[in-house]
């Protein structure tokens, strides 16, 4: 049974070594299987919010739980149940990593120290690569793939752990329309299976045709939190961001 509940109560987060909070006093509850879109202008704290949920940044005030686990004290356990697709990746074309290697890395945290991936892990990796249509690329070096193919590989990596929550940071940047629609369809299917999806995006025309929850961030504060239809998201975000969003 998946429990992708995300609960933040008065949470403020600062970067390591800094006292100044980047996001302040954030409160919301997301129920399992919800599809959440996070919008807002540049520097609003959208990526920081994702990293807070994933337990990668120290919480300076408030309390956060993900999958019923306390983010401040059980970050590693949470990250084994949460997939996170980062923004702005760039891989060296000569880097010694094949697509298969990179996808399998998503299982490493689950396996723990000293255990090598087994046949079951390889089977799951093959299934996820097939879902994303990258099984033919398995033996190719990741650095030699296009941006869209690399994005699919990173999504596959976050899916092989069979996550309860999937966090995506600008997953549609630099993708052509066809690839955007394809990935959007994959995410829709994953949400149907009960996985909570939280996505920072400004590609509002690439959202699944379902009710989504919209969170709008501005200057580190959450200024909007409401479910709405996918075709209403852009209007809400644009209005609340003063015409700018990123």
């Amino acid at each position: 049974m998946r429990d992708g509940t995300i609960n933040l109560a008065g949470v403020s987060t600062a970067y390591e070594g800094s006292d100044r909070p980047v996001i302040r006093d954030i409160s919301f509850t997301i129920t399992p299987g919800e599809f959440v879109v996070v919008g807002g202008p540049n520097g609003a704290g959208k990526t920081t919010l994702l990293e807070t949920v994933n337990g990668m940044l120290p919480i300076t005030r408030g309390r956060a739980t993900v999958c019923g686990l306390d983010v401040a004290s059980r970050g590693y356990e949470i990250r084994r149940r949460v997939g996170y697709v980062i923004q702005n990746f760039a891989f060296d074309p000569l880097a010694p990593f094949t697509v298969r290697d990179v996808v399998m890395m998503g299982r490493y945290g689950l396996l723990g120290y000293g255990r090598r991936p087994g046949e079951e892990d390889r089977k799951i990796a093959r299934e996820v690569m097939a879902l994303l249509g990258i099984e033919d690329l398995a033996g190719r070096p990741i650095g030699k793939l296009s941006g869209g193919q690399q994005q699919k590989v990173l999504i596959a990596q976050s899916l092989v752990k069979r996550p309860d929550v999937l966090l995506l940071d600008e997953p549609f940047s630099n993708l052509d329309l066809g690839t955007r629609d394809f990935i959007c369809g994959v995410l829709d299917g994953i949400a149907d299976e009960g996985c909570t999806i939280m996505m920072v995006s400004h590609a509002f025309d690439a959202l699944p045709d379902r009710e989504v929850r919209v969170l709008v961030m501005n200057d580190g504060h959450l200024i909007f939190n409401r479910p709405c239809r996918a075709d209403e998201v852009e209007d809400h975000v644009r209005t609340l961001s003063g015409g700018h969003h990123a």
């Binding site: 990668m56 590693y76 990250r79 990746f89 990593f97 998503g106 490493y108």
Partner: peptide, 18 residues
């Protein structure tokens, strides 16, 4: 496997639960 993931990308390795 942990070293391989850290070499690939420290942030991605951390996000994978390593």
């Amino acid at each position: 496997k942990e070293i391989t993931a850290v070499i690939f990308n420290k942030k991605i390795a951390e996000a994978a639960g390593i």
